[in-house]
Amino acid sequence: MTLTLHSAVSRFSGRTLWRIRAIVRRLAGAVLTVVVATFAVYAALAAAPGDPALALAGRNPTPERIAQLHQELGLDRPLVVRYFDWLSGLPRGDLGQSIVYRNSSVADLLGPRFGTTVFLVVYAAVLILLLGLLLGVLGGAFRRLNGPMAALTSVALAIPGFVAAPILVSALALGLGWFPAVGAGSGFTDQLWHLTLPALALAIGWCAWLAQITRTSLRAEKASEHVGTATGRGLPPVTVFRRHVLRNAAIPISTVYGLTVAGLLAGAAVVEQAFGIDGLGTLMLRSVSAKDYNVVLAVASLIIIAFVVTTQLVDALHTVLDPRLRTKGGRK
């Protein structure tokens, strides 16, 4: 009796336990990443020159006034203590108070801007996916288009967002008047209209990047032997491309796309600044120069968490796309 029970338990535990263990390990890794990264941000900010108390103390502050402000803000305590103070507030959803905007909590500052930035990032992510894939597939599927696409994407890749932004504004907003030059708009369609240029400016380089990865992965996959097998079996070229080239190239493409989307939140700062959008990015830039610890940390955490979550999702997607990763212990 005990023997059968024991074997039942071990049979149950074999796969399931391994899975649970893998999930726990992943979660622990993700949490650790967030903690280490936020501490790095905190420490870097603390090491940077400047003192938030100076801005608050007004003109010609006395050393006593500064010391008093330090005490009020808790800045007189050691770095590690301050960091853990901040960290312990997280589980309760307490992001702390802003230093610059006194009397307003960080959560209140983040709330309205969060929606705008997420809209912008999602908009850009969709543009990257559609345009990047389209250009990449065109270049990868048709031999004649390979050269032109390589040239086009190299040029687009070389244009940084802060250069693309003013060009787009002067051409499409000021020149043709199709889109507004500044502001985020309100309501879905208005936001869509307002954020088209910023999203384009944000997306353009990443689009080119994704297009290049797509094109080269498709070409590499096309040259692989199993594609020859599929062709040699008389499958129609469209089927060969879809089932054997695109499907296999989806593995590198999805990786690059995932990482791109993860990085968009950080990239949004520059574009928001250029288009005068009051989003998380502009808030963070302002807060960094003012050394507004809690605000910087809150935005940084969001960026870090977005990164960690996306990379985990990409990993999960990999096991769906590549059966070789599903078997316990990798190969076979």
Binding site: E225, H226, T229, R243, N248, P323
Partner: peptide
């Protein structure tokens, strides 16, 4: 083909 591992698509 010579090498079945290369000649068969690994994802199906």
């Amino acid at each position: 083909y010579q090498d079945p591992r290369a000649a068969i698509n690994p994802v199906y």
